[in-house]
Design a protein around this nucleic acid. Sequence first.
DNA 1: TCCTTAGTTCAAAAGTTATTGAACAATTGG
DNA 2: CCAATTGTTCAATAACTTTTGAACTAAGGA
Lengths: 118, 118
Amino acid sequence: MTLPHPNTDQISLPIVLGVLGDPTRLAIVRYLASKEGVPLNCSRFLDLGSKTNLSYHLAKLREAGVTRAEVVGTNRMITLRRADLDARFPGLLDSVIAAAADDAALPAVGGHDIEASA
Amino acid sequence: MTLPHPNTDQISLPIVLGVLGDPTRLAIVRYLASKEGVPLNCSRFLDLGSKTNLSYHLAKLREAGVTRAEVVGTNRMITLRRADLDARFPGLLDSVIAAAADDAALPAVGGHDIEASA
DNA sequence: TCCTTAGTTCAAAAGTTATTGAACAATTGG
DNA sequence: CCAATTGTTCAATAACTTTTGAACTAAGGA
């Protein structure tokens, strides 16, 4: 029940760039970066598209090596593969995230934060 | 006889990333970076595809704001828009070029250097 | 067990991008 | 003017990508 991920040395520059060249996926990466450390499940991104469509985009990100998906019960916990990307393409992720942070044209992941239920 | 270019603030992150997510275009950018300052005409890239196909890829790069094409006689002199890209997306181009420099999977622009004819 | 929640898979449709060749335009040199 | 050089445009096709809905799987809770 583990999903396929490329290992670090298999991550390809054109594939990563191509995958990030999509507003939906860039919005996902931007949101993941803003919540770094916190593992988020897929339904967090439902603002960005249908369940099916997100499954598609999240698979693209995972197959490119940009994210990692860990199966936890019926959930897939999604994290950015920051260390791997930094090792393979130093500075790339940082500059992409910094640029994406200011990009008003990107769709936003809404703020239905459940956190702090105490 | 000037070709259309976006101005700096019109350059879009997802479009730039998408355009760079293609091995042919990444190879063009890598080569331009390696010859920075030297304006190169389109036929420099003929190793990477047919004349028509290069016209297509070079137009994509230009329309995305990655390159500038200046008309000089029957030539289009192509340069990287490094200052504009650095202003808009600090660090992005550097990290892409550094990563592309080591990428053996990218096609190469051959070495038919004419230079130093003196 | 049955129901719900979370997400995937499949096939179809729609849309986009890449590649090709033939025809075209513009400039330069003879 | 004529021919060569440089690159574009156009239309066709091929190849991919995105989006959709319906059907499905797998785990967890009542």
